[in-house]
């Protein structure tokens, strides 16, 4: 990245592909309970989307382009772009969510991390929908994977 700008082709493709990849990732996350997909895959895919942005626009872009912050927002760890802090919190929140979903199970008197499924019926448009408590856990997995991998990518990329 250091030597020169990326080509227009890369930038344009990245701009188009980025939201599509994110959408796919979220779809994979949500349908994971019944069809191929799940938190881990969705997390890796999301990371890949961000990595693409890094390649095309440089490491400071998500910070300055998306949040309008000055690129000098350096993390206390003094390496990687300022968003690294955000990534760290993301994985922490994910871990807390995953563990928390297990603790809720304990509070309800079942073993740690036991999951249940609730069927909500008579909804408009959808009719019957299945809500799995496992989704909370899966979202936790997703957040951890995204946060951790992006931390690594951003820090290593900044070197």
């Amino acid at each position: 990245m250091s030597d020169g700008e990326s080509t227009v082709i890369v930038r344009t493709v990245a701009r188009v592909v980025f939201p599509l990849v994110l959408l796919t990732a979220i779809a994979l996350l949500l349908r994971g309970h019944n069809l191929p997909g799940g938190g881990f895959i969705a997390g890796v895919l999301t990371t890949a989307a961000f990595a693409l942005v890094y390649i095309a626009y440089g490491l400071d872009y998500p910070d300055s382009g998306l949040f309008g912050r000055a690129p000098d927002g350096v993390s206390p760890f003094d390496s990687g772009p300022g968003l690294v802090d955000g990534y760290r919190y993301l994985s922490a929140v994910g871990l807390a969510l995953a563990a928390g979903s297990g603790v809720v199970a304990v509070l309800l008197g079942v073993p740690f991390l036991a999951q249940a499924v609730v069927f909500v019926e008579h909804l408009p448009l959808y009719g019957e929908i299945e809500v799995a408590s496992a989704l909370a856990f899966d979202v936790g997995v997703y957040l951890v994977v995204v946060g951790a991998l992006l931390t690594i990518v951003a820090v290593v990329g900044a070197e």
């Binding site: 309970h33 191929p36 496992a134 997995v141």
Partner: peptide, 16 residues
């Protein structure tokens, strides 16, 4: 509660 409740067995194993 005693069934996984998902048709993707791999994912049910992972999360349940």
């Amino acid at each position: 509660t005693d069934f996984g409740g998902g048709s993707n067995i791999v994912n049910v194993i992972l999360v349940d």
